[in-house]
Design a protein around this nucleic acid. Structure first.
Length: 278
DNA sequence: AACTGTCCCTGCAAGC
DNA sequence: TGCTTGCAGGGACAGT
């Protein structure tokens, strides 16, 4: 499922192929993916617009347009953004198709339709896209220091895993990377965040940055079921470096002594090694 | 503030 | 083999 590293990989593909391109045609299939506004709003907001740059905050893809508006794409669980030749056969669940002035098409494909596409006015973000306005710091795209992590962990009574999953606290971390980050930092997911001393908190900061950076370098994680792929349809390879996620019941790769436990926290599958994580 | 549960949706896997 | 049921998961939201 797309988290910060996967969305960043898609963003880099968009930066390479979409910047400077004009949208000559916009088509919307299922109205659900444009539920925040409407089919007409998306089509009129995109037709004739030039994509000026690419940005990302957490899991939100942001493409500023020359009209002053910004195109936002959120992949949620099963969304994909694909680049294709004009006129190519569109896969099932292609809900938005944009034709570019160089003849290529950009597709938004999403079987579960949890994802969404919207054109909004960034001047009015607090009203048009309130979740984006309330997002916490992005650990890769924005300055993010150990002082930030210290502040975030001290100010709450929550456990580490739900805190990492909270997009208002830190933007971009989902279930896979929360488990991998906590394993890397040798911290239990159910440990109260406020119990971290300065040293453990600094370790957590290091793990957040390191795991996300490594995952971006690997092009993200592509699991068997969720089928994350980049703009060109290629999968990532970071799943080969997962040490706990999806390894419940296996011997811990890090300490070689414990077994990876799979529990449920915050309604999500949680994986950790009780021997090396405290 | 911080829990839990619900909803949205489809594909896949397990059970019958 | 073919059905039904359950589960996964991002994230907003409602209720406690």
């Amino acid at each position: 499922m797309p988290e910060l590293p996967e969305v960043e990989t898609v963003r880099r593909g968009l930066a390479e192929h979409l910047v400077g391109r004009r949208v000559t045609r916009a088509e919307v299939g299922r109205e659900r993916v444009v539920r925040r506004t409407s089919r007409d709003a998306l089509i009129s907001g995109l037709t004739g617009a030039v994509i000026e740059s690419t940005d990302r905050r957490g899991k939100y893809l942001l493409l500023p347009l020359d009209t002053g508006d910004t195109l936002m794409i959120h992949l949620r669980m099963s969304g994909q953004v694909l680049l294709a030749a004009g006129g190519a056969i569109r896969p099932a669940h292609t809900h938005v198709a944009l034709t570019l002035d160089d003849g290529h098409e950009v597709w938004f494909v999403d079987p579960r339709t949890f994802g969404e596409v919207v054109v909004f006015d960034p001047e009015n973000v607090a009203v048009e896209l309130p979740e984006l306005a309330r997002l916490g710091p992005d650990p890769i795209a924005e300055p993010f220091t150990r002082v930030d992590v210290r502040r975030i962990t001290r100010a709450t009574g929550r456990a580490l895993k739900p805190l990492l999953l909270d997009q208002h606290a830190i933007a971009g971390i989902g279930n896979i990377y929360a488990d991998e980050i906590l394993h890397d930092a040798r911290l239990r997911p159910d440990r109260p965040a406020s119990s971290l001393d300065a040293r453990a908190s600094a370790r957590l900061h290091g793990s957040i940055v390191r795991v996300l950076t490594d995952a971006i370098a690997a092009g993200g994680s592509t699991l068997g079921d969720s089928q994350y792929v980049d703009l060109m349809g290629s999968g990532g390879s970071y799943q080969d470096e997962h040490r706990v996620y999806g390894r419940g019941g296996e011997r811990c790769l890090t300490c070689g002594r414990g077994w990876v436990r799979r529990t449920t926290t915050a309604g999500r599958g949680t994986h950790f090694c009780a021997v090396c994580q405290h």
